[in-house]
């Protein structure tokens, strides 16, 4: 248990000569400061939700503040700042894979049924599908095609953006 300051400046318990664990203790004021920051940001995020900057704007502000709060918790309360770099990599990789999951899934749900609307106006002749000239082989404007899309695939029916503009909360 003979460890000096100099020997463990990488974080948790490195450098103890006999391999015993030596803790890395942060000053109390770091914890108080973190706690105050978190409370402050909570108040800010509630307050910001009453300011109307559009639904997307409010969403971005809320997520931004939440991300800052989460980073503070992870870096200081969870000691990630002083921890092995690999633990940070583990944590961040979870977020990257989560982003991949949500992002690619939305590439489906946000764009579902877009081809059906075109197909509906360009019926394929099943007896001669490769006929050179199909009737009206041009892109159909989306509005004109919307009714056709609604009926074509049940789960996809809702993916056409909702027409109703909601009242601002």
């Amino acid at each position: 248990m003979s460890t000096s300051h100099a020997e463990h400046d990488h974080g948790h318990g490195h450098g103890s000569a006999n391999g015993d664990h030596v803790p890395h203790v942060l000053p109390f004021k770091v914890y108080i400061g973190t706690f105050a920051t978190l409370l402050f940001l909570t108040v800010v995020t509630v307050a910001a939700s009453y300011v109307d900057i559009g639904h997307t704007g409010n969403l971005i502000v809320a997520l931004l503040i939440a991300t800052i709060k989460a980073s503070v918790v992870a870096l200081i309360f969870m000691h990630l700042k002083w921890d092995h770099k690999f633990h940070g990599i583990i944590f961040v990789s979870a977020l990257i894979f989560l982003a991949v999951f949500i992002g690619i899934t939305m590439s489906d749900t946000e764009f579902r049924g877009e081809a059906e609307s075109i197909e509906a106006h360009n019926p394929v002749d099943l007896k001669d599908p490769f006929k050179a000239q199909r009737t009206g082989d041009v892109a159909i404007p989306k509005e004109a095609a919307a009714p056709a899309a609604a009926g074509s695939a049940a789960p996809a029916a809702g993916s056409a953006a909702p027409a109703v503009t909601p009242a601002k909360h």
């Binding site: 318990g13 391999g19 015993d20 664990h21 092995h84 633990h87 989560l98 899934t105």
Partner: peptide
């Protein structure tokens, strides 16, 4: 081999477990 390795191994295990928690909730966020 030593207490330090054991301590680090435990914490790495917990971090990996937290990854699974993030992805579990991730499905609902999706």
């Amino acid at each position: 081999d030593k207490a330090d390795t054991q301590f680090d191994a435990g914490r790495m295990g917990v971090w990996l477990f937290l990854v699974t928690e993030i992805l579990l909730f991730g499905g609902l966020f999706c």
